[in-house]
Design a protein around this nucleic acid. Sequence first.
DNA 1: GTTGTCATGTGGTCACTACCAGTTAATATT
DNA 2: AATATTAACTGGTAGTGACCACATGACAAC
Lengths: 245, 245
Amino acid sequence: MSTTINPYDIIPKYYQLANILRQKILAGEWPPRTPIPSERVLESQYNISRTTIRQAIDYLEKQGFIYREHGRGTFVSPQKLQKGIQELTSFSEDMLRRGIQPGQIIQSIERLTPSEEVLQRLELPPDAKVLRVERIRLGDNIPIGLQTSFLKLAENQTITREDLDATGSLYRILQEKYNIIPTEADETLEVTLATPYEASLLQIKPGAPLLLNERLLYNQNREPVEFVKILYRGDRYRYLIRLTK
Amino acid sequence: MSTTINPYDIIPKYYQLANILRQKILAGEWPPRTPIPSERVLESQYNISRTTIRQAIDYLEKQGFIYREHGRGTFVSPQKLQKGIQELTSFSEDMLRRGIQPGQIIQSIERLTPSEEVLQRLELPPDAKVLRVERIRLGDNIPIGLQTSFLKLAENQTITREDLDATGSLYRILQEKYNIIPTEADETLEVTLATPYEASLLQIKPGAPLLLNERLLYNQNREPVEFVKILYRGDRYRYLIRLTK
DNA sequence: GTTGTCATGTGGTCACTACCAGTTAATATT
DNA sequence: AATATTAACTGGTAGTGACCACATGACAAC
């Protein structure tokens, strides 16, 4: 296999290196708690300066794949919850993962004036209009979630059903079409009971317990851009988090 | 002056600079969304190399005080997000916040061999013993949660009811008494239904929806030290998260 | 055996240098 | 007036070199 760094690529070296190292960890080549090669070794091994090596390691550390111990070395993190961790530590990766789950059905896309609660969350005036996207999330062809997104978009910005069909991901559309990059989010999780309408869509009984996930997304400038409500079937969903520091 | 040798009091430059900048932000000298001095300006202003300047800015960015825009500058984060960030980015503070909620009642403290699931989570052999702490969490004198903690402790390490009464927080006891510092945690959240036993303790009806929060805490060396299960009444609890980057 | 010293390997900090990449506003061009 | 160009900012990436702080094991001294 090739693990060579390509210096002429547009992708930063530290990022390429981080991917190589991450791959070795995920492939099991470096089991949890084993030390990865020291910074000096990596330096000569890949012919990359220590500055860049450390930048890559910083990146992986922030993502939770490795941890450092001063004077001892850098080690692979134990990945108890393996899949969950990898996907959830990187916010954008998490967004991507959630957005491109297969089997999504778009329910409706429309521009309207939302409830006062939503207006307030998005820091909008009372008469503002937003784009609402409703869809059902499927897993193994069984409904597991009901998602409603409220997007703050300018007059000339639109998202069509074709956009969504093409990429499947709202986040990717926002990013590629309008250069809106979500960088941060506030979330709440709570328990609710299914209304008859929700129950019929989720194929459960009215009054069945649901996990309500509300999420407020911010762009690069810390302005709220999207408010999302997701109702998950209580019997088919589990929420993973990782707290650090 | 002092003959005491204290090699630990060397505060890194980047850390000192970060504190200076943070102070200006908190004091309101630099209001939200205003650009802080550019890296080149700070370089000559403080006679610190750009490497170190960037290290300080990295640190403040990670803490959520500022955000960068390539080609434009580095700006103070809007006030609005700041409090939340400080509270939730620091894991120990978050733990503290959760641990010292008033009105806790200690149900029982005992040393026993837990279920296989718990042993596995704590990476212990089949015959190992752990300390179990059960308690009910109250809010306004109404039960809102049922908490069970499983602590991995050495034979000579004990936690008494007096310890808990004194500080109220398991985390503080671990830290002060045995120098165990929780640095990371994996969490899951899911919905369950109350058993008759749980229902009676939480003063709800059997079968009522609950929010089950499981948390695995790691120490400085990434070894699991505590496994916590908390059952929250679905009608009285809301879970807050903050995702970044 | 126990203790202390020390060489060596590890990550942590810092300076100096160079160039790349995105943004903006002044300026020249049409 | 509208458009294109450019210069002068901004942060981002990368290399080199040096020294500090911590951890550990080999080994000498007791």
